[in-house]
Simulated assay, not measured.
Amino acid sequence: MRIVTFGFQTWGRRTLQALIDSRHEVVLSVTHPASESSYKAIWNDSVEELARERGIPVHLTERADEATIDLVKRAEPDIIVVNSWYTWMPAELYAMPPHGTVNLHDSLLPKFTGFSPVLWALISGEAETGLSVHRMDETLDTGDIIVQKSLPIGPTATGTELVLAGMDLIPAALNEALDAIENGTAVWRPQDRAERTYFHKRSEIDSRIDWTWSAVDLERFVRALSDPYPPAFSFYRGRRVEILTGAVSDYRFGGTPGRVVVVDGAAAVVCGPDSFRGGNHALVITALRDADGVDQDPAQFFARGGYLTDSE
């Protein structure tokens, strides 16, 4: 089939590479210009670079405007494939090809529509994440599903590991979907919108630790925000500190959420609801970076005790 791609960052590049490696023909690659914004600069392997290397026509644009629609129309695609496209696509565009448009979304739809689904799934305590190939319609990530691949979330998995593992699902899922569409054997499964969950774009404040969360939740939170994502952070004696790794304490701690104590050679933070009752485990900080960007030994750094807070 003749395919036009809309994609950006590493997800878009991996999708384009999968199509290049397939028996289909990519006749146009539409992508966004490079960006320095915080989240767009993460996983920023270039779609444009790969397309130009392979002699595929490239169109750079921030949105699907009239010029973009005209270029796609002249390319005469059988189908449009989308992965990591940041702006709205009108029905005039996504319904244009004979086989419409499919989008790749890195969650098990209808859960975790929206943004950063892998990180939110890990933070939420889900047992699995995955990849969905679905038909594009007028609402974000809600179209009928043709292929889903699941990915278990292990007890030590980081956000980075899960994102990379999810990208590895792209070639098989995409080829399965395109084969079924081309052969006329596709079975489209409508999403149950009552089961839909939507998650917003992440910003800096979403990495700030809330010490009223349980230690189990906070350990997952810290693990989700692994490099290259902005790490979990808090404030200690008026200065920002980044919590890079943590663990759930073996025994329970009581007191005020955010109180950090050094016990048995480890820095433990009281956390969770009703912590004054002494029924909660603590978050043990195992790797720490100070406000100057220097890695510190947590037990030595917090030797004076004190409180971790949500503001300076």
Rank of each mutant, 00 (worst) to 15 (best):
A165C: 13
A165E: 09
A165I: 10
M167A: 12
D168G: 13
D168T: 06
D168N: 14
D168E: 11
D168I: 01
L169S: 03
I170T: 09
I170W: 03
P171K: 03
A172H: 12
A173S: 11
L178P: 03
N183H: 12
N183W: 06
G184V: 01
T185S: 12
A186W: 04
A186P: 15
A186S: 13
A186G: 10
A186I: 02
W188R: 15
Q191P: 13
Q191M: 04
D192Q: 07
E195W: 10
Y198T: 14
F199I: 08
H200W: 09
I205D: 08
S207E: 09
I209N: 05
W211L: 05
W211D: 07
T212I: 06
W213Q: 14
A215D: 02
D217L: 07
D217Y: 08
E219W: 02
F221A: 05
R223P: 15
R223H: 11
A224Y: 03
L225H: 15
D227H: 14
P230Y: 01
P231V: 04
A232T: 10
S234R: 06
F235H: 14
R239E: 12
V241A: 02
I243M: 06
L244Q: 10
V248N: 05
Y251T: 15
R252V: 09
F253M: 13
G255E: 03
G255I: 00
T256R: 12
P257M: 05
P257N: 07
G258Y: 00
G258R: 04
V261D: 08
V262R: 02
V263R: 05
A267V: 01
A267E: 06
V269Q: 01
G272L: 00
D274K: 15
F276Q: 12
G279M: 07
N280G: 05
L283W: 00
T286K: 04
T286G: 04
A287S: 14
G293D: 08
G293W: 02
V294L: 09
D297G: 03
D297L: 06
A299H: 10
Q300L: 11
Q300E: 10
Q300F: 11
F301L: 09
F301V: 12
F302H: 06
R304V: 09
Y307A: 08
